[in-house]
Amino acid sequence: MTTTPISTVLIVHAHPEPTSFSTAQAHGACRALEAQGLHVDLLDLYAQAWQPVLDRHEFPAFDGPFKPQREQWSAVRDGTLPDDVRSDLDRVLAADLLVLSFPLWWFSMPAILKGWLDRVFVMGGVAGGDAGLFETARLAGRRAVALVTTGGPAAAFAPDGAFGDIDEFLFHIHRGVFEFVGYDALTPVITYGPAHLDDAARADALRAAADAFRDIEHRPSAATSRTRRSLAG
Results as ranks from 00 to 15, higher is better:
Leu139Pro: 00
Leu147Lys: 00
Leu100Ala: 13
Lys67Asp: 15
Leu133His: 13
Trp73Met: 15
Ala75Trp: 01
Ala154Trp: 09
Val122Ser: 07
Ala156Asn: 11
Leu93Cys: 12
Asp55Trp: 05
Ala156Ile: 00
Leu117Asp: 07
Arg77Ala: 14
Gly64Phe: 03
Trp73Tyr: 15
Asp78Phe: 09
Leu117Asn: 11
Ala156Met: 06
Ala146Trp: 00
Trp106Asn: 11
Asp130Asn: 09
Phe121Ala: 03
Gly64Lys: 08
Pro110His: 07
Leu170Ala: 07
Trp73Ile: 14
His57Arg: 13
Arg86Asn: 13
Phe134His: 09
Ala75His: 02
Phe169His: 12
Thr136Gly: 11
Gly124Ala: 10
Ser87Ala: 15
Arg143Ser: 04
Thr80Leu: 08
Leu139Val: 02
Gln69Arg: 15
Ala140Asp: 08
Gly79Met: 06
Gly129Thr: 05
Asp78Lys: 11
Ser101Glu: 03
Arg142Thr: 04
Arg86Lys: 14
Thr149Asn: 03
Gly129Cys: 10
Leu89Ser: 02
Ala155Lys: 14
Thr149Met: 02
Phe163Glu: 14
Gly161Val: 00
Ala75Ile: 05
Trp73Asn: 14
Ala154Asn: 12
Ala111His: 09
Asp118Cys: 07
Arg91Asp: 06
Glu58Trp: 10
Ser101Leu: 06
Leu100Lys: 06
Gly64Arg: 06
Thr150Gly: 02
Asp160Cys: 07
Arg56Asn: 13
Leu113Arg: 01
Pro159Lys: 03
Ala111Trp: 08
Arg143Phe: 08
Val148Pro: 00
Asp160Tyr: 08
Val53Lys: 12
Ala158Leu: 11
Phe121Pro: 00
Ile112Met: 02
Pro153Asp: 12
Val92Asn: 03
Ala162Val: 09
Ala144Arg: 00
Leu93Gly: 06
Thr150Val: 04
Phe66Leu: 12
Val120Gln: 02
Ile112Thr: 02
Phe157Trp: 12
Phe121Arg: 00
Leu93His: 13
Glu168Gly: 11
Pro52Cys: 04
Gly141Tyr: 09
Phe62Gly: 10
Leu54Lys: 02
Ala94Phe: 05
Phe107Leu: 11
